[in-house]
Design a binder for these strands. Structure first.
Length: 603
RNA sequence: GCCGAGGUAGCUCAAUGGCAGAGCAUCGGUUUUGUAAACCGACGGUUGUGGGUUCGACUCCCACCCUCGGCUCCA
């Protein structure tokens, strides 16, 4: 078999990359040890939790007598620098039989360490290892730098509460997050990325660009301003276009639904606490957190034939989820959301094709954004319904489709929904952050719970399968993500105001309005800046609003029925014929190009 | 829900127990302009809400609301 030269190159660079990853992980893990030692210097009574390396850095959890302050962090960081300067060797100090190790940690008053040792599986062997640098010794599997002097550039970032072992019934410890890199340049670049993310915060941009705002009168629900709504509509139009070609039919279903439906679906048992429940005279009703059971009611309104299937419903209804207050976050986590929800009722023998269709629609719908989807296969959770045999079959099916599609995917053990496994799709944004987007689920449970059936070719009754998916996920969240991805500089097809017409003097107002109408008639979103301001001021304003195209109109343009466009990128032209200009924008808009540039704001 | 931080004019931010202020925005006027900010003036506040301490509270204390960073959760 011939070996592709490119493949060798890729393997080699992958090996290099993973060697570098190992090195960074060892360094960050070592930094965590040094931080623990420093914390013990400041708080001799501190009890230690765990301290792993993570993406971009490390953390360590502590039980401390009082909350940490920013001053404490500085002090701890200084003590770490002192260790770094002291060039202390990291050494494998000893291996102790479990009982002795437990005794040692009891003596040191480290109950969390005792618990870790007690819970180590037998397969880890009869002894546990300890590592030391300076006077600090910690229970540890190993994987360190040779010496504290090898720690590169680091910084302690912030503190946060974290439950011991991630269990909310256990004590809450104080976690200190830090970051560590080989060089100061890499550290600076990372800190720049954090700063850049802060600047792109969608809550800030949403207000500055007049897209959406949040108000305490309706917490965790965005108020969409005209400009935000324009983005929403552009997204919705694209979603409908994608689904129309794929044979979907749009439905709309009620928000307020009696609890019996949720009992049948299983949501009442599993998510009752996260539903808004209302008193409906002598009934109990809930605001719907999901569309599926209602699509099912539509399915059941008539006898279905095998010839009717697949039936594909799209539903853009509003959903309500009573999220715990602490999880709310701008557009990312809201209590009222709208999905581009899709439900396909199909025969078992059509399922593979429907999963293929779903994956292809994900690719298609993401293409104009420049998003490259990756997947996670989320398998059976602890809290679930259905037999193991069912889960096995369903998981394999999803895996096969992913393999076949070639989409890169990872496993998310136990991450499935209570009624079935799912494919979660995520993307990486311009700053290297990952966002979970679409989710695709093959569901055998709801059809059974609702006793769905269709008449088969042989005259018998068969049970359909439901494929659930949402590609944007929720519109709210998606808008938040793309606001940050583009740093507010939306490509033409998404820009709330696509063209700002800038008359030079008041005598050009009539012509400016004529230009606006020409653009609007062509289906573009255009406005005239009719203020009695200087042209430069209007351009600055439009530029700050990240409007992709400005057109200046003055005497020369008016005479020639032309415009003088200026792009957000700074590029400008004089005296372009109005017809040509409109036609050019119309075609770029229709093609949903990433134009003028997607990431110009990042540069 | 839990841990921590925060909330002053529409926005960004000053004022640490003693007269709540600036820039931008807004409004009025002057200016009519060729590719990123014209000039002059005016308006704007129950300092998140409610209680308390004090001669006096933006400032100190308590409760609540909202937001942010995390943890847990995410059908």
């Amino acid at each position: 078999m011939a070996i592709d030269a490119d493949e060798i190159g890729q393997d080699a660079s992958a090996a290099l990359a993973s060697g570098r990853e190992d090195h960074l992980a060892a360094m960050r893990h070592s930094a965590a040890h040094m931080m623990a030692a420093a914390v013990l210097e400041v708080f001799p009574d501190a009890r230690l939790g765990i301290g792993p390396a993570i993406k971009d850095g490390f953390y360590y959890d502590f039980d401390l007598p009082r909350p940490l302050t920013p001053d404490d962090l500085e002090q701890i960081e200084e003590k770490m620098r002192a260790q770094q300067a002291a060039d202390l060797a990291f050494e494998h100090s000893r291996d102790l039989p479990r009982e002795e190790a437990i005794g040692l940690n009891r003596e040191r008053n480290q109950p969390f360490k005792v618990e870790i040792i007690q819970d180590l599986p037998e397969s880890e062997g009869p002894t546990v290892s300890f590592y030391r640098h300076g006077t600090f010794e910690d229970l540890c599997r190993g994987g360190h730098l040779e010496s504290t002097a090898q720690l590169g550039a680091f910084k302690l970032l912030h503190t946060a509460g974290a439950y011991w072992r991630g269990d909310e019934t256990r004590p809450m410890l104080q976690r200190i997050y830090g970051t560590a890199w080989d060089t100061q340049e890499e550290l600076d670049r990372y800190l720049w990325r954090i700063e850049e993310a802060r600047k792109r915060d969608h809550r800030k941009l949403g207000r500055e660009l007049d897209l959406y705002t949040f108000h305490p009168e309706s917490p965790a629900a965005p108020f969409l301003h005209p400009r935000g709504m324009a983005i929403w509509r552009a997204l919705e139009d694209w979603s409908r276009e994608v689904r129309r070609g794929a044979g979907f039919h749009e439905v709309r279903t009620p928000s307020l639904v009696r609890k019996e439906l949720w009992e049948t679906s299983g949501h009442w048992a599993n998510y009752q606490d996260n539903m808004f429940v209302l008193d409906d005279y002598d009934h109990v009703s809930g605001l719907k957190p999901m569309n599926c059971p209602e699509e099912i009611l539509i399915y059941k309104t008539r006898a279905r034939s095998y010839r009717d299937l697949p039936i594909r419903f799209a539903d853009y209804s509003v959903l309500f989820r009573k999220e715990r207050t602490g999880v709310l976050a701008g557009m990312f986590r809201v209590r009222q959301l709208t999905q581009d929800d899709s439900h396909v009722f199909c025969r078992e023998d059509q399922l593979d094709d429907e999963l293929r269709l779903a994956l292809s629609l994900v690719r298609k719908q993401y293409a104009p954004f420049g998003f490259e989807p990756k997947a996670r296969l989320a398998t059976r959770p602890e809290k679930r319904i259905g037999s193991d045999e069912f889960w096995e079959r369903a998981e394999n099916r999803l895996r096969d489709r992913l393999e076949e599609d070639g989409m890169s995917y990872a496993l998310d053990e136990g991450g499935g929904a209570f009624y079935g496994p799912k494919i979660d799709i995520f993307i990486e944004d311009a700053l290297g952050r990952e966002w979970q987007m679409a989710t695709i689920q093959a569901d055998y449970q709801l059809p059974q719970r609702f006793d769905l059936e269709y008449r088969a070719a042989d005259g018998g009754f068969e049970r359909p399968v439901i494929v659930h998916y949402a590609i944007y996920g929720s519109f709210e969240r998606f808008i938040g993500i793309i606001t940050e991805e583009y740093a507010g500089a939306f490509p033409l097809w998404l820009a709330p105001v696509q063209v700002m017409v800038v008359p030079i003097a008041d005598r050009h107002l009539d012509y400016a309005e004529r230009v606006r109408v020409a653009l609007a008639d062509a289906g573009l979103r255009a406005e005239v800046d009719s203020r009695s301001e200087r042209m430069q001021a209007k351009l600055r304003e439009a530029q700050e609003q990240k409007i992709p195209v400005m057109v200046v109109v003055g005497d020369r343009d008016q005479e020639a029925t032309a415009v003088s466009p200026r792009l957000r990128t700074g590029e400008s032209h004089q005296g372009v014929a109005l017809d040509e200009f409109v036609a050019d924008l119309v075609s770029r808009n229709a093609a949903r190009e990433l134009w003028p540039f997607a990431d110009e704001a990042a540069s």
